[in-house]
Each structure stands twice: as C-alpha cells, then as structure tokens.
Design a protein around this nucleic acid. Structure first.
Length: 524
RNA sequence: GUCCCCAUAGUUCAACGGAUAGAACGGCUCCCUUCUAAGGAGUAGAUCGGGGUUCGAUUCCUCGUGGGGACGCCA
C-alpha cells in the first residue's frame, strides 16, 4: 500500500525528491503522512504550507485515496479507501505463505555470525549474535535476496595452541600461565582425554585441535538443535583459507597496491589509509601469517564466490577490529560491507551483575540459558532489543514470569484466531469484504497490510527488533478485535467476511513466526 | 591515556530529524452464563546537565557527568 502511494508522490513531486512516508500513531493524521514538503520548501525558499497546498492540488485523488489534508506546519496526510485495505486482504489470502515476500533480487549477501572460537562454550553475546544473524538472514531472504549464513571457524593458530597448552596445564604437565583458558570445561576435557594429552605432549596444536573439534560439536548442537539457529556453511580457517592459498592471494593484492611495508622484521599493511588508527601486522617477524591476514583471505573468498555484500555480526570485544576489516573489504573489492557490533549481555542475579570472563571461566553460557529458558522466550527477548544496546538479562525474572513474556502474548493471539477457524462452520470463500468497516475491522486490516512494509524496512536498515515489536502490536490489535467483534453467531454475510479477516491474521502470524524462528503453537 | 557503545516511566526496552515520546512488567480501579481471561477497559508515571545546528532535536554536533567495553608481532 505504501509503495502505491509513494509511486504516486514520486510522479507528482519534482524529480529526485526523497519520498518519506510515515504511519502516524493517531489516525487523525491519516493512514500515511509525508513530510517531503519541508525539504522542497527549503530548496525553493517558500513557506512550507504554500508548497504543501500546491503539491496536494497536484496529487489528483487516485482511486485508492479517500481524501488528503494539508496540516500545519506542512504535513500532507492521506486517508486510503477502505477498498484498498479490503483488496490487500484478498492479496493475503491469495499469496498465503508467501505474503510479505519481496521481489527476487540478484544480490547475493553473506551474513557471517557467531564465529566464536571453539576454545570453549558459547557466551550470551554469541547467542545474541546467533539469534540476530538467524533472523536477519530470514528477513533478507524474505525480502528477495540470496543469503548465505556463515560461521567462520578459527580452527588453527595461536588460540588453538593456547587451548592445547591449557589442557596440558590442567593435567599438571606444564606450568599454568596467565593467558590460558581455565574454565571447568578445559579440566573436564583434559581429564577425559588424559591419555591422548600425555601421548602427544609438546604437540600443543594437535591437542588443541582435538579439543576444539569437540567444543565445536557442542557449539553446533547448542546453536542448531537447541536454539534453532540455521547455518549454511561452517568455513574452516585452516582448510578453506590457508590450504587454498587465499592468505597468499590477499597478500599479493596488498603488495600490488603498494600498501605493504617492513618494519622490525614484520610485514605491515597500511590500514591507516582507510581510517584505521594504526597499521596492522600481516606477517609476523617469525614469518607466520596473522589471524588478520587469514581474515583478509576470508573476505577475498567471499568476494570471489560472487557475493556483493557481506554483513558481519561481531561481539563487543571485536570493536577494535572494525576499521581494519573494512579496509580489507575495500581492498578485495567487496561492494558493500557492514559490520554490526552487538553489545554485551549482562546477567542479573538477585539484582547483582555477574562478572563474566571466558578465560577465567566465570560466566553463564548460552547453553545454560537455553536449558533454563524456552528457546522461543530467549529468542524473542534478545530480539526485542536493538543490537547496539547493552542488555540486562534477569534470569530469575525470565524463568518466573515466563508466562507473561510477550512471546506468549503473540502466540496466544494466534491460538485464539486458530480456535475461531476451527469452530466456525461457515466458509469465508465468497465473503463480501465490504462489510468489514468497523473501527476494529479496519485497524486489524491496516496492521496486516503493514506486514510487507515492516519486512522491507527491517531488511533495509537491519533493524530486526521491528519484527518483534510488530508481533506485539499485531497481537494487541487482534486481542482488541477479538474482545469487541464476534464472528460466530453474527449474521452470515458478516460472519463470512470476518472469518476471512481472521484467516488472514492467522496467515500473517504464521509468516511472521517463521521469520522470527519461533513456534506457532496449535493450542496453549 | 586513546577509542567505541549506552543514558528515556519504579524496572527492562521502543521511537527514517516530525505532530500529543510508545510498549511490557510492576502500582491502583473495573470486566469471565459469550469464538481459549496466557485476554480486555481505565488510571498514575520519563527524554542525565550545559551550549549549538533548524521551521522542528530523544534523535545530529560540542563540552561535561555517570555506567559498560576495547586497545599486544593474541584471536
């Protein structure tokens, strides 16, 4: 609906005008409202009200417009014909489980998320990134993009060696060091695999890789089986990047561009050219490629596999990494690169913040959270909050009050709607939709019609919290409708029309739940 | 020390630079012979403090205050 209106305005307003359309809170400002006039007025130096009146004159009342109004200081508000909403209802019933999908687009987008080092269990921030990546990928897919969901596995290098050493130290074979991983999970693994560790003493990479492989299996189970987060590809740093020579290729590109220099025996990349605060080492003085160079190889791989866009979701500890990654993205020729840094998740325990550290092993794992809180609840809770906001998670509250969690509110609305469909003995097939004209009917229709717009918005600004918020709003409007309007027991024609409306509501809920990755319960 | 994120109702969070700042939980008052009350109706309650940019600022810039985090030839 918005697209029709915005097309109409685009035809009328001067070329190149950005058409911004809002949905006002209060219907007295219309179904849609625009503020384009302000920018036009500024350009021409004329009073906004004059420009608004002139533009409003030109926008001939199109078939789907009921009326429009110029409101000070220069808004134009539009009211659509009820017929437009009724047509949209037909559209929902026709498109069914593809209602809300955007046009197919050629762009291939890679979404990389979680990518936690397999040196231990997942943190809550990893889980947050997991849900975000999962739903963002779904959203982009619905909007018509081709999406690959990737987990980049750092399965070699120093942190794996450190893991191997940590296991050896846990058995008392070597003295412990500050940098070692000290969690219970290391001790547990080491004692179960004590024979292997002893047999391979000094081969720390080998020990570390065996441990990492096992931790990786646990990570996969938690993410995919328990939390329902989907991945298409687990990319191995060792196998897919180093062994395929991509680090070398990346190095060649950098050399050709004259951006590499030697200093103190190491080789440095001039990332400062791209806004980084200092240059970065790519080859150490011992002659080894750094993790950063591997990442460059990884970005090169993404580019050469045909992706025009990459979205990388990182945890808060990687903030210092953004500038150099963006430098690399540019160097390998990726058309668009976005990095989303999710902020910390803090756990509250009886009102107190728990300090969490992976190295020290004092933290609540994502796995523990998923075991205690139903996945639907955890997912919805994490996704309601914008990623750049710090999140306080009160575990007691989540468990205790889980019945009151907004996810149940939405699911309950769905169940209520389903229940009507089951009990109604009439058909909605030949309903006369013109009968849907009460305030509650129209509010619900409007909310349903907003669904494609929400997806479009979320896909363009990656604001996934729009979807959970929409779920709550749709539920609220439906509950309200349910209280005030009856379906079963009203005159047949009206009942049929309302039934069509309920059917459409069920459909939109199902599509929405699918994108959000939460279940659509048949009863509660 | 340098850099990043955050600051909105008692609490946890929303709000492309737009009109009267929205929800949820928690308070208080009502509503179940009616399609599932895990629901509905009502009520009280907020933009950290200075400056600036403009028709308009919770949003942008700047200074400050308070919280969280990152800064290794680790990843």
């Amino acid at each position: 609906m918005r697209d029709k209106l915005s097309a109409l305005l685009r035809k009328t307003a001067p070329k190149g005008t950005e058409i911004g359309l809002n949905v006002p809170e209060d219907e007295k400002f219309g179904h849609y409202s625009t503020n384009v006039v302000f920018s036009l007025a500024k350009k021409s130096g004329r009073p906004p009200m004059d420009v608004a009146r002139e533009l409003a004159e030109k926008v001939k009342l199109a078939g789907f417009l009921k009326r429009l109004e110029v409101a000070p200081p220069g808004f134009i508000n539009f009211w659509l014909e009820e017929r437009a909403f009724q047509d949209e209802l037909r559209e929902i019933l026709k498109k069914k489980n593809s209602y809300g999908r955007g046009k197919r687009k050629k762009d291939k987008i890679q979404v990389e998320f979680v990518s936690a080092n397999p040196t231990g269990p997942l943190t809550l921030a990893n889980g947050r990134g997991g849900f975000l990546g999962d739903v963002l990928s779904n959203t982009l897919e619905w909007n018509g993009f081709q999406v690959e969901r990737e987990y980049y596995v750092n399965d070699t290098g120093n942190q794996i060696i450190t893991l191997g050493k940590s296991a050896a130290a846990a058995l008392g074979l070597i003295p412990a060091e500050e940098s070692f991983y000290k969690g219970d999970y290391v001790r547990r693994w080491a004692s179960v695999n004590a024979a292997f560790v002893r047999r391979n003493k000094e081969k720390f990479l080998k020990i570390g890789q065996k441990a990492a492989a096992e931790f990786m299996r646990n990570i996969k189970t938690t993410l995919t089986k328990k939390a329902g987060i989907k991945f298409n590809r687990f990319t191995s740093e060792e196998k897919q990047i180093h062994k395929k020579g991509l680090t070398k290729k990346a190095m060649e590109i950098f050399r050709k561009k004259g951006l590499v220099y030697k200093k103190e025996g190491a080789e440095w990349l001039k990332t400062t050219t791209f806004g980084d605060d200092k240059d970065r080492v790519v080859i150490t003085s011992d002659g080894f490629p750094t993790y950063f160079l591997a990442d460059a190889g990884h970005y090169l791989e993404t580019k050469s596999r045909g992706f025009s866009r990459k979205i990388n979701i990182l945890g808060p500890d990687h903030f210092g990494y953004v500038a150099r990654i963006q430098a690399v993205a540019k160097l390998v020729g990726l058309a668009e690169s976005t990095i989303i840094i999710t902020q910390l998740v803090r756990m509250l325990d009886k009102g107190e913040r728990l300090k969490m550290s992976k190295r020290k092993g004092t933290f609540i794992t994502f796995n523990e959270l998923i075991n205690e809180v139903p996945p639907d609840v955890a997912r919805f809770f994490f996704l309601t909050i914008a990623p750049e906001t710090h999140l306080d998670f009160d575990l007691d509250l989540a468990k205790e009050k889980s019945q009151k969690n907004p996810v149940y509110y939405a699911q309950y609305a769905y169940v209520r709607a389903l229940s009507i469909l089951k009990k109604a003995k009439i058909s909605a097939a030949k309903a006369d939709l013109r009968l849907l004209s009460s305030r509650e009917d129209i509010s619900l229709l409007r909310m349903l019609a907003a669904f494609p717009e929400i997806i479009e918005d979320a896909a363009s600004d990656y604001g996934v919290q729009r979807l959970t918020r929409y779920a709550r709003e749709l539920a609220r409007i439906f509950h309200d409708f349910y209280e005030k309007e009856r379906i079963i027991g009203v005159p047949k024609n009206l009942a049929a029309a309302r039934l069509a409306l309920v059917k459409a509501t069920v459909q939109v809920f199902e599509n929405l739940f699918k994108i959000l990755g939460i279940s659509a319960p048949q009863k509660m």
